[in-house]
């Protein structure tokens, strides 16, 4: 959380954290406190003796520029929604701008993914899982972060509801699935592809850029 506030997390990871914070009042408060602390550190930073830079030219240059006008009260941004499988999901603020630029949904059985234009190092996408659907057993070649936006995901380790963040590493193998009566929308951030373990589904390993 400190790293998130300081802005030292990688962009893709920060996106998942920001989206969680949108959904979690507890973390909103924690975040505000950390933010204030870090600002205090900056404001009370002692100066070294040899910090004798002459900033006067910069000062003059800046104050020579026009200021921006206060914008009119921003109309509350309309909630972005995504549609998939005949369902409509409201998207948290942190994801709104990106979700508006989502790629096409690629569907395979009960699973659909749409790329978000966020990743440089990581693969960031919306992941929709229909009710009663299982993602085949897989291992992770890197970091997998799954933030549940709506519905519930279950795997061998537990159940996760809206706002919950699942983090899996190369040490983890699992078979996530939805409930029989409820579908699920997630934000998925992958640093490396998944590795499917069983049978023909392994074909997804080399082809998976089309599905994830």
């Amino acid at each position: 959380m400190e790293q998130y506030v300081a802005g030292t997390l990688s962009a893709d990871v920060a996106l998942a954290v920001a989206t969680h914070i949108d959904l979690c009042p507890h973390c909103q408060r924690v975040c505000q406190d950390i933010h204030n602390d870090q600002a205090d550190v900056l404001a009370s930073m002692p100066l070294e003796q040899d910090d004798t830079d002459d900033f006067s030219a910069l000062l003059a240059e800046i104050t020579g520029q026009p200021q921006l006008d206060k914008p009119r009260q921003k109309a509350a941004r309309e909630l972005v929604k995504v549609q998939i499988n005949g369902r409509e999901f409201a998207i948290p603020r942190a994801l709104s701008r990106l979700a508006e630029q989502q790629g096409k949904w690629l569907q395979l059985g009960g699973i659909a993914t749409a790329k978000l234009p966020a990743g440089d190092k990581m693969h960031v996408s919306l992941l929709y899982i229909d009710k009663g659907t299982e993602i085949p057993n897989h291992t992770h070649l890197g970091l997998e972060m799954t933030l549940v936006l709506s519905g519930t995901i279950c795997d061998e380790n537990g159940e996760y509801g809206a706002g919950d963040l699942l983090i899996n590493t190369p040490a983890d193998t699992h078979t996530p699935h939805t409930r029989a009566d409820e579908d699920c929308l997630c934000l998925s951030v992958l640093s490396a592809p998944l590795k499917f373990n069983k049978g023909l589904v392994r074909l997804l390993n080399p082809l998976q850029q089309f599905f994830y």
Binding site: L108, G109, E134, P136, N137, T139, L141, T173, T175, P193, K195, N197, K198, G199, L200, V201, R202, L203, L204, N205, P206
Partner: peptide, 25 residues
């Protein structure tokens, strides 16, 4: 990704549903 054809085999139930989907669809 290609670990020269030796992928670990796990005990877990194969997802037949997926295989059919993957192939047929």
């Amino acid at each position: 990704l290609w670990a020269d054809g030796d992928y670990p085999e796990l005990e877990e139930s194969a997802t037949d549903q997926w295989e059919t989907m993957l192939l047929s669809e």
